[in-house]
Design a protein around this nucleic acid. Sequence first.
DNA 1: CGCTATGATTCGTC
DNA 2: GACGAATCATAGCG
Length: 450
Amino acid sequence: RMLQTLAGVNLAGHSVQGGMALPPPPHGHEGADGDGRKQDIGDILHQIMTITDQSLDEAQAKKHALNCHRMKPALFSVLCEIKEKTGLSIRGAQEEDPPDPQLMRLDNMLLAEGVSGPEKGGGSAAAAAAAAASGGSSDNSIEHSDYRAKLTQIRQIYHTELEKYEQACNEFTTHVMNLLREQSRTRPISPKEIERMVGIIHRKFSSIQMQLKQSTCEAVMILRSRFLDARRKRRNFSKQATEILNEYFYSHLSNPYPSEEAKEELAKKCSITVSQSLVKDPKERGSKGSDIQQTSVVSNWFGNKRIRYKKNIGKFQEEANLYAAKTAVTAAHAVAAAVQNNQTNSPTTPNSGSSGSFNLPNSGDMFMNMQSLNGDSYQGSQVGANVQSQVDTLRHVINQTGGYSDGLGGNSLYSPHNLNANGGWQDATTPSSVTSPTEGPGSVHSDTSN
DNA sequence: CGCTATGATTCGTC
DNA sequence: GACGAATCATAGCG
């Protein structure tokens, strides 16, 4: 309105009333006053719309004219007064709003994923190099480096975009502030107002940032799920690993439940790759890290093995023979040493490889000795554990060869599955499982089912 | 391409 | 939390 007024006075020589003095339109429903205001607004709009058509010089000249107008200081002070009064109502309407919880969540996630925050390792090249150095043959290192590379890519995009936004925000803020400063010559603008305006701009930009963060989070989630899916893929163990696990399984057939330590040892021996152990979100696993993950793979294997062995013992018989024979020699030797028995006519002619040819002289005595070692007193001790495994192996071989059948009254003391009537593994420590050869009902369940 | 083997996952139980 | 059982899903073979 001031513009209109001043422009009117200055350029057209009209007074304020000049505008109002226009003749009323012939069919006006509203009063003359309303139409006059309409006209005013129309003029202003027109001026605004045509402002781009004006040349810069023209606009500058107009501005200059406005600034130099004799009424300007007076009008300016009036405006200041009005502003002082109305500005108060604006102030305090918008206080510092609390941090957006969703934004905080996004920030936290980006931080946790290593997208925001300090750079780790520094770039994809470093990540790839680190992965290559750490893993070597493991295919997981490839996957892992791939994941890292992709994450780094996301990270880079995120930071570039963020920087762009920040730059744009700063530029825009500066621009607006310049504009306001410029405007403050013709209208009163308090620093508070500038501050508020800056706040508004920042909020606008932060909402854009939020979108960026959100889409970055989504990208990370997608990458993550894809990576996890890839890890879900089943990888067969290496032959050696399967062999080692099978050896343990068949040599501990009476109690194929490896302890945590044994699992760890087996995992180490089998060099279970991390990719095989990263089946679940690592966060879900224990804090111990890869050890626990790898032993869980071993647990999986034993769980599967137990159930499948039990389900179809016949199918595994050959395999059992193979592994039993494989370990028979060492087992026999070790048992001989462990037992420290004078009467150890140690099986020096193992004929390894052929399960059917393994011969055990004095098998009865040997067996009895082994029985005694199978007691509780040895459980838990290293010797006990060793002996237990060797006992298992020997028993198995014995059973397969039938070499012990004489003198044991046909009671097959070694059941290849050592399963009780319920289908579960007999507890090796319970006397009833393997004790007296003369046991009656207890042995009924034995391998005749084969 | 179908089938089997096998590693992983899920669910219920103890 | 470990385990068994069932199931899923893929590797690998013929």
